[in-house]
Every structure is written in C-alpha cells, then in structure tokens.
Computed example of a mutant assay.
Amino acid sequence: MSHILTLVAPAGGLAAATLARLRASLTALGADAGTPDWLAPEEAADIPFAGLSPEQAMAAATAALEGAPIDAIAIPAEGRRKRLLLADMDSTIVTSETLDELAAYAGLKEEIAAITRRSMNGELDFRQALVERVGMLKGLDVAALEETWAATEITPGAGALVATMRAHGAHCAIVSGGFTFFTGRVAERLGFHAHYSNTLGVADGKLTGRVEEPILDRDAKLATLKRLSAELGLPLSATLTVGDGANDLAMLGAAGLGVAFRAKPVVAAAARARVDHADLRALLFVQGYRASEIVAG
C-alpha cells in the first residue's frame, strides 16, 4: 500500500469497531484499504491504503469519526520514520508559555498573555510582539526565572518522543522563540541534542527589558530546519517538525511531516497534520513505532 492512515486516541479510546468503520469509509470512496494493524491496543492503529490522497483519507476519517476524540494522520508509507526532529518548546514540549508565566512575577501575566495569544495566532508581528512583551519585564529580578522553571511542566509523551527517536538514530533539537534559560534546561532534561532560542538581557541581577540580537523569529525556524537538514545530509522529506503557533507554520509546511500539536486556530486550519487529543507519543505512532518500541523518557 502506498499510504498509511494512523489513528491515535487517548489510552483506551480507540475501538476495533471504529477502525472497521473507517476502513469501510475509505473503501466506499474507492480506496484499496488494508486490514487495520494495532500499534498500541485501544490507543493507536494503522490502516494501509491506496487510491486516495492523504487529504482525501483524512477528510473521510474526520467525517467518519463524527467528533470523537481521535486524531487521524495520513502519510506516504515510504520514508515514514524521520531522522530529524525539530520541536517548538512553549505549549508543545512544555505545557505552558514560559514568558507568560514569567510575567506573573511582575504582575503582568494576563496583559502579556493576551499579546502572546494574538502573536501565536498570527495577528501580530512575532518579532515586535516579543520585543514589546520583554520590554514590559524590565527590572524583574532574575530569581523569577528559576521560580518559573520550577513550575514548568513537560508535556506528556515528550520524553518518550525524544528518547525513542534518539534510540533509532534521529537528531533531536528544540527551536523556540522563547529563551535559552528555559530551552537549555528542557533540552538537558529530555535529551535533545541541541536547542536554539533567544537570550534575555540581564544586568545586575535584573532583566534589562531587551532581547539580545540576533532574534530568533518565525523565519529563523525554517532556516534552522534547512540548516540542520543540510548539516546532517538529510532531505527535508526525512524531517519531522512540531509546534502550535503561527511562527511555526513555515517549518511545519516545509518538513516531510509537520504536525500541529493542540495548535492555535490559524495553525490548525493550515497544517497538513494535527494532533488535538493524544499526547506527543502520537508522533511516534504516526512514524510506525509500536508500543513495544517506545523508550521511556
């Protein structure tokens, strides 16, 4: 079969009857649909198919699922496992927007979070919004950085995603419009090979309100993907990117597999692949990893 439709649900949320219904839907559209193959019992399964485009298969799945909390992603069967993972950090690898959480220590969380939401939905220029938000934090004691990090939570499945891809020879990196203070710690905790992000200005133990140049903006994410691919000798088809905000769209569109993870509306509407319900292990299942192959992270 030329393509694979992968279905992933929160644990226990995928039934054999659902797979049978989806297979029948593909067949009704003229596809040659194979027997479903469980990757993780009642959680993830593949349906191989031919005769439809990935977009047609996912549209059929969306209709057949009728709003059930199940993610459906269709990709070519060839080259399914990727050799480079490039991941956004905020609201992707970690559950929060670290700049918004940092702003809480200046009593500005709601004000700054409102700007963040508009920026991540593509309503504001990313660079200008970043500079504006950091400027509002001028004079904040650097101790707030440590307090913010102590409260930062890793997204479920992130550790397994990195550990499993590393174990199978993939290069894993973070690229973030956030800050090195956080990306460095996340990279160390989860085992990313590298991290790329912005640097907060600090003087005399306080934030200066400036973002040090060069600023990593939305264009830099795509540039990082292309640079790493070239350095590793990989075609873009062998890459996997994941993110949630408008500044991730370019790298999601350029990668062999670009996944919008619980994304902002503008990103969800534009992305070819979405994970709205499952955790980050869904990115492993889409690559064909079975539960027995997943490495705990």
Rank of each mutant, 00 (worst) to 15 (best):
V8T: 15
V8P: 03
L22G: 08
T35W: 08
D37K: 12
L39S: 05
I47R: 01
A61F: 06
P69Q: 11
I73G: 04
I75A: 13
L84P: 06
D88S: 09
S91K: 03
T92V: 03
I93V: 15
V94G: 09
T95C: 13
L99W: 05
I112V: 15
I115R: 01
T116F: 06
R117K: 14
M120I: 11
L124F: 13
D125S: 13
R127W: 08
V134S: 06
V134E: 06
L137K: 01
E146H: 11
A150V: 08
A158P: 00
A160L: 00
L161G: 02
V162M: 02
M165V: 03
A167N: 13
A167I: 10
S176W: 05
F179E: 10
F181Q: 10
V186G: 02
E188N: 13
F192G: 02
H193G: 12
S197T: 07
S197V: 06
S197Q: 04
L200H: 11
G201V: 05
G205E: 12
G205R: 13
L207W: 05
T208L: 10
L222R: 12
A223V: 07
L232M: 10
T239G: 07
A246E: 11
F261W: 11
R274W: 02
V275T: 08
H277T: 07
L283M: 12
Q287L: 08
G288T: 12
R290V: 10
A291R: 15
S292I: 09
